[in-house]
């Protein structure tokens, strides 16, 4: 073996040389067998993406189109394979979403295309790909990132879904508001039974966990915003749908509880600096339903106020809530048939779908805004824990 003479960092060009026969070993160690919870925790965010890109740069540098194609195909297929295998694990999916995006950003940042070079240092410009235009592969990677995003959303839904009805509707944190339970409410019994139920706190803890995992993986802030908006949409849609189907959830005090819960979710957004990501807006139908439970529902003026307030609810939803509304305390009254007729008449000309329930499967279209990195490739050092000692820094 040749003696490995350490070189000064400034002599490196930010490439990693590998033998063609080591390609499978490379994707195996760096993608298929990398444990996001183990080794990857201590890595700089996106390191696997940078390492793979530095290998790609070398294949480009030696002008070997077959090597470039083969590596890209192996990378993409390996990411797909690991997601097939561990696609129900939020950490794995989040890890590969952020790395796929980082790899895609690198392909742009070092493409030589002026539109992506605006923030580059001159050294970074020197490191642009020299022989191949990989625009078509960028498209494939972008398609892959969309697939991974959708998988992340599904994964997150599977975890959140069982918590939503219990945490947002059933569990009561405001003491003494409801007094007498509305008829038909399943009685919550001993504290032991409560231990198995989810509370709003469980939801908030889960949101914290998702958020901190994504931050740890160096997920693009713009992408985190989109995930959070989708999370809030699901929470709002599942909660509203259950409210629309359960008489025992349509009372003045439930309205109060929901508004409190929504305020806690808003507080969470504020705390995470995510107030402008559009998440709060997705809760608007639920907020309006909660308000509807609490406003007076008697006179023509009440009807007018309701119609202008509930612009995010469909007529079907408004009428359903009014029909289900169940007085709990002496000062509350059932909504009269006449009042509901008045509302229906007022809303007659609205152009809307007659759909009662919200689509809980809806996924907002995702985008991956270009996010160049200031990291200098030539300074990247690869920890031995990655098991890629067969790569040579060039």
């Amino acid at each position: 073996h040749p003696v490995n003479i350490p070189r000064r960092e400034k002599d490196f060009q930010g490439m990693l040389e590998y033998k063609k026969e080591d390609e499978l070993k490379l994707v195996k160690n760096l993608i298929l067998e990398l444990k996001p919870r183990g080794v990857a925790v201590n890595l700089i965010p996106g390191l696997p993406a940078y390492v793979l890109f530095m290998c790609l740069r070398h294949a480009d540098y030696i002008n070997d189109d077959q090597k470039v194609r083969s590596l890209l195909t192996s990378i993409i297929n390996s990411i797909k394979k690991i997601l097939k295998k561990r696609g129900d694990d939020f950490e794995t999916v989040s890890f590969w979403l952020s790395n796929t995006c980082r790899f895609l950003h690198c392909l742009k940042q070092y493409s030589g295309d002026e539109q992506f070079m605006k923030h580059n240092t001159s050294k970074q410009n020197d490191h642009c790909l020299s022989n191949f235009d990989l625009a078509e592969y960028r498209q494939v990677l972008s398609d892959l990132a969309i697939q991974i995003y959708q998988q992340l959303i599904k994964c997150m839904e599977n975890i959140l879904q069982p918590m939503i009805v219990s945490g947002m509707l059933e569990h009561e944190t405001i003491q003494g508001v409801s007094g007498v339970k509305p008829t038909g409410l399943r009685k919550r019994t001993s504290s032991i039974a409560d231990e198995g139920t989810y509370t709003l706190d469980s939801i908030i803890r889960q949101l914290n966990s998702f958020h901190s995992i994504m931050c740890q993986h160096g997920t693009d802030p713009e992408l985190i915003k989109q995930v959070v908006k989708q999370q809030f949409y699901i929470i709002g849609a599942v909660t509203l749908n259950n409210l629309l189907l359960r008489k025992d959830m349509c009372s003045w005090s439930k309205g109060m509880q929901i508004r409190y819960n929504v305020s806690q979710l808003e507080e969470w957004l504020r705390d995470k600096n995510l107030m402008t990501c559009g998440a709060k807006e997705t809760l608007e139908p639920l907020i309006q339903a909660a308000q509807l439970l609490q406003v007076k529902k008697k006179t023509d003026e009440d009807a007018e106020a309701i119609c202008s307030m509930c612009n995010s609810l469909s007529t079907a939803q408004i009428v359903k809530v009014l029909n289900l509304y169940t007085p709990v305390n002496a000062f509350e009254e059932r909504v009269s048939v006449l009042f509901i007729r008045t509302i229906q008449t007022r809303l007659r000309d609205r152009k809307e779908s007659p759909q009662l329930l919200m689509d809980t499967k809806l996924i907002y279209p995702v985008t991956f805004p270009f996010n160049p990195s200031s990291l200098a490739l030539e300074t990247i050092q690869i920890p031995s824990s990655l098991n890629v000692g067969f790569l040579t820094r060039v």
Binding site: I76, M117, V140
Partner: peptide, 30 residues
């Protein structure tokens, strides 16, 4: 100037076509 370089466009297969080039053939077969 790096941006003035002429690079060769590498035609890429689609994601689905890529899947057919299974690089893990040996491992995946029973």
């Amino acid at each position: 100037r790096p941006q003035s370089r002429i690079r060769v466009l590498l035609k890429a297969p689609t994601l689905a076509e890529m899947e057919e080039m299974n690089i893990f053939e040996d491992e995946d077969s029973p």
